[in-house]
Design a protein around this nucleic acid. Structure first.
Length: 647
DNA sequence: TCAGAGCTTGTTTCGGCAAA
DNA sequence: TTTGCCGAAACAAGCTCTGA
C-alpha cells in the first residue's frame, strides 16, 4: 500500500524528528477515535470513548519517551489531560468553512476577470468542497497529494492560485524602513497584481531588499508560511507533469484597504466586488527559488517516516510555537514534561524572559551573552527558582520573591494615589465584537472588529453598585446592521456632559473601537469623543503602562513595573487570570453557552439564524456573559479598595 | 587633517501580550 | 485571524578623543 501524505500531514512530519515519530504512532489511535465517534450515539458514550482514547495515548507515550536517555520521571508524569488538544473537534474551523469557501469563489471570479481563459475552482456540497484540481507525486513509495484552490489556464499559460484568508498588508508592507518611511519590496502592476520590484524593468536593488525577500522564503515567519504552501504545490506539480506551458504561481489574499459599500442582493446577501476585495500576489520567482528547500524537506520527511526517532530534542521557540495558540505543536506538552518543565512557575513565568538570562551587565566589562530559556532548559534549569537571583532584572526579582515567599506583591501607596484620580460616577464598560475576514456591514474593512454588544455597570458613588439594577446593555439581534442603535444607546447611557471616568480592561481595544466608530459615524463624534477621553484602564492600576508611568510622578522612581503581582497570574494580566484572585466566587464556567469572547462571537454568528425560543435562550446567555465581564471589573476594584484601606 | 576606537544617541526589528 | 503597544536587542549614525 502506498503511504498517503497530504500537505497537512507533510507539515506535521516536518516540525521536528520527534514530532514526526510521535505522529506515526499516535495518528492511528486518533484516526480510530474519529472513526468511532462518527458512529457512536449519545454524549455519555462519546465521553467514555474520549477517555479511553486518551488513556491509550497516555500508555503509548509513557512507553515512547521512557527510552535509555531517561525521559519523563514520576513527578512529571503524563496525564490524560495532556491530549485534550489532539481530540478536540475544531468548532471554530467548522464555523469558518463557509467564509473560506466564499474567499475561494471570489478568487475564482478575480482570476477570470484578470486573466480570462478557463477557471477551475471547487463546488461546495455540505461540509465538503469538490471539483478542485487534484495534484499528486509518487516518490519512494509515498503519494504526496493536494488540491489547488483555483487554476486558471489558456493555450499558453497555467496559473496556480492558492487562496488564503489573510490580508494583503503583510505583503504590501514588507520592506525596510528608512527615516520612518517604508520602502516596500512589492509593487502593484497595471493589472493590480502585487509583484516583487525585481519583476519590473527599471528595478534597482536597494538597501535590505534581499534581506526582506528572504523573509518570504522562511516558513517560520508570518509571511513565509503562506509562501511555503504555494512552493509545496509547485514542487508537486513540477515533478509530476510534462506540460510545456508556462506556469505562474500566486497567493490570493484579502485587500486590507477594501471598504465594503453595503450593496446587497434581493435576498439580503452582501455583494462584494471581487476585483477590489481580492489581491493576487505573484510569487513565481520566489517559489522557484524555494524548490531546493522543498526538495530537501521532502527527503527529510521520507527519512523520518522510514526511521522514526523518539529521542529528546531541544525546544525551539519558532518551531514548537511555544506560547503560540493555534499552530502550537500538539506534542509540546509531552516534550515539556520530558524535559521536566513544570506547568506552573517554570522559567517561562518571567516577564521579559524571552530575551534570555545572564549576569547583570557591568558597564566596565564586555557584554556577557545572555542564555536563552530553551538553552537553560536543555541544561536542566527549568524552574523559576532554579535561576541565579542576580541574573534577574528588578521586575523579575519581584516575581521570584513572590514565588519564594508565597506572598502577593502590593504597592498600596501607588494604588491608593491612582484611585484618587477617578471621577464618579464610574462607568464600567465592555465591548463584544466580531472580526470576520470579509466585512459584514457598510464602511467596514476585512477583519474589522465589528461591534455588536456592550455592557455597562454604573457605580454612582465609591463601592455602590448593584449587579442587576445598575446594569444596562445593548445586543444586536444579528439580523440587521444595528451599529447606529448601538451608538445611540451607549451615548445615552454615558452622557457627554456629566463627567465620570469610563473604566475598561485593556483600553487599547475599547479606544480603538471608539475611534473606528467616530470614523464611520462622524455625526456622533462629539459624544463618542467624550467617552474616549474619559477612558481609564483598570489594568494600569495593577500593571501600569509606559504612558501612565510618564503621567504619574510617583511611578517614575519605581524600579519594578508592577503595582500588584500574585503568583497565580503566571505573568499574565488578562482578566481571566486576575479575576479569580479578587472574586473567586465569580466563575465563568458557571455561565451557560458563552464563557469567553470567542464563544460570544460564535453565539452571535448563530443568532442570525435562530428564531423563537432558541433565539431567546442564546440572546439571554450572551447578555449574561457580557454583564459578568463588567461586574468582574467592579469586583476587582472592590478588592483593591479593601486592600488599600487595610492597615 | 585624518583614521580608527570607543562612546552616545537614535532608529528599526523582533517577540510577546492584550482584546475579540 | 486582526490590531496596537511595549521593551529589549540589534543596528546605524554621529560625536569626541587620540595618535600620527
Amino acid at each position: 500500500m502506498t503511504n498517503q501524505i497530504s500537505k497537512t500531514t507533510f507539515l506535521k512530519y516536518l516540525r521536528c524528528p520527534r514530532a514526526a515519530a510521535f505522529e506515526g504512532d499516535a495518528a492511528a489511535i486518533v484516526r480510530d477515535y474519529q472513526r468511532n465517534l462518527a458512529h457512536i450515539g449519545g454524549e455519555e458514550k462519546a465521553k467514555i470513548l474520549e477517555e479511553e482514547t486518551k488513556e491509550k495515548l497516555r500508555q503509548l507515550f509513557i512507553r515512547l519517551i521512557e527510552n535509555d536517555e531517561g525521559g519523563a520521571e514520576s513527578e512529571a508524569e503524563i496525564e490524560s489531560g495532556d491530549f485534550d488538544g489532539l481530540l478536540k473537534d475544531d468548532l471554530t474551523l467548522k464555523a469558518m468553512l463557509s467564509t473560506y469557501f466564499k474567499i475561494e469563489q471570489l478568487t475564482a471570479e478575480k482570476a477570470k476577470k484578470t486573466f480570462g481563459g478557463q477557471v477551475l475552482s471547487g463546488m461546495r456540497v455540505g461540509d465538503q468542497v469538490i471539483g478542485q484540481r487534484y495534484i499528486n507525486l509518487f516518490k519512494d513509495g509515498f503519494n504526496f497529494h493536494s488540491f489547488v484552490d483555483v487554476v486558471q489556464e489558456d493555450d499558453s499559460a497555467v496559473r496556480i492560485i492558492e487562496a488564503k484568508s489573510t490580508t494583503s498588508k503583510k505583503f504590501a508592507e514588507l520592506g525596510p524602513k528608512k527615516n520612518k518611511e517604508l520602502c516596500p519590496i512589492f509593487e502593484r502592476s497595471p493589472f493590480g497584481v502585487l509583484r516583487l520590484k525585481e519583476d519590473f524593468e527599471d528595478f534597482k536593488p536597494f538597501d535590505k531588499y534581499y534581506d526582506n525577500r528572504e523573509k518570504l522564503m522562511d516558513r517560520f515567519r508570518d509571511v513565509g508560511r503562506y509562501v511555503y504552501d504555494l512552493a509545496w504545490q509547485r514542487y508537486i506539480i513540477e515533478n509530476s507533469t510534462d506540460d510545456k506551458r508556462e506556469y505562474r504561481y500566486y497567493l490570493a489574499v484579502l485587500n486590507s484597504d477594501y471598504v465594503f459599500d453595503g450593496r446587497q442582493d434581493e435576498k439580503g446577501e452582501n455583494i462584494y466586488d471581487a476585483d477590489d476585495l481580492i489581491v493576487l500576489v505573484d510569487l513565481t520567482q520566489v517559489t522557484k527559488d524555494m524548490l531546493l528547500i522543498v526538495d530537501r524537506d521532502v527527503n527529510t520527511v521520507i527519512d523520518r517516516i522510514n526511521k522514526p526517532d523518539f529521542s529528546r530534542v531541544p525546544l525551539e521557540k519558532p518551531k514548537c510555537k511555544i506560547n503560540g495558540s493555534y499552530d502550537q505543536c500538539p506534542w509540546l506538552k509531552i516534550c515539556m514534561k520530558d524535559l521536566m518543565v513544570p506547568d506552573k512557575n517554570s522559567l517561562y513565568v518571567y516577564r521579559g524572559g524571552h530575551t534570555g538570562f545572564g549576569p547583570a551587565s557591568d558597564k566596565s566589562k564586555e557584554k556577557v551573552q545572555k542564555e536563552k530559556i530553551e538553552e537553560l532548559i536543555w541544561r536542566g534549569i527549568t524552574k523559576a527558582l532554579d535561576i541565579d537571583y542576580d541574573w534577574l532584572n528588578d521586575t523579575q526579582k519581584v516575581q521570584y520573591d513572590v514565588i519564594k515567599s508565597g506572598k502577593t506583591f502590593v504597592d498600596k501607596k501607588v494604588i491608593k494615589a491612582m484611585f484618587k484620580d477617578l471621577k464618579y460616577p464610574l462607568f464600567h464598560l465592555d465591548f463584544e465584537t466580531m472580526n470576520f475576514p470579509i466585512p459584514m456591514y457598510r464602511g467596514e474593512v476585512p477583519y474589522q472588529q465589528s461591534l455588536f454588544q456592550y455592557s455597562l455597570h454604573i457605580e454612582r458613588t465609591p463601592g455602590v453598585c448593584d449587579k442587576e439594577k445598575d446594569n444596562v446593555s445593548f445586543l444586536s439581534t444579528g439580523k440587521t446592521d444595528d451599529r447606529e442603535e448601538f451608538i445611540k444607546s451607549m451615548i445615552k447611557n454615558i452622557p457627554a456632559n456629566q463627567g465620570g471616568t469610563v473604566i475598561v480592561y485593556n483600553a487599547i481595544f475599547e479606544s480603538g473601537r471608539l475611534r473606528e466608530l467616530i470614523e464611520m459615524f462622524p455625526k456622533y463624534a462629539v459624544e463618542l469623543n467624550s467617552i474616549l477621553e474619559r477612558i481609564y484602564d483598570l489594568k494600569d492600576i495593577l500593571d501600569p503602562s509606559k504612558k501612565i508611568i510618564a503621567d504619574y510622578e510617583y511611578l517614575k522612581s519605581k524600579p519594578c513595573t508592577f503595582n500588584y503581582y500574585n503568583e497565580s497570574f503566571q505573568r499574565s494580566y488578562s482578566i481571566k487570570k486576575v479575576l479569580p484572585v479578587f472574586a473567586p466566587h465569580l466563575d465563568y464556567a458557571n455561565l451557560d453557552e458563552v464563557h469567553n469572547g470567542l464563544d460570544a462571537q460564535a453565539a452571535f454568528m448563530r443568532l442570525k439564524y435562530l428564531e423563537g425560543k432558541a433565539f431567546d435562550e442564546t440572546y439571554k446567555n450572551m447578555i449574561e456573559y457580557c454583564k459578568q465581564d463588567t461586574w468582574a471589573m467592579f469586583e476587582i476594584m472592590q478588592g483593591l479598595r479593601k486592600l488599600i484601606n487595610e492597615k
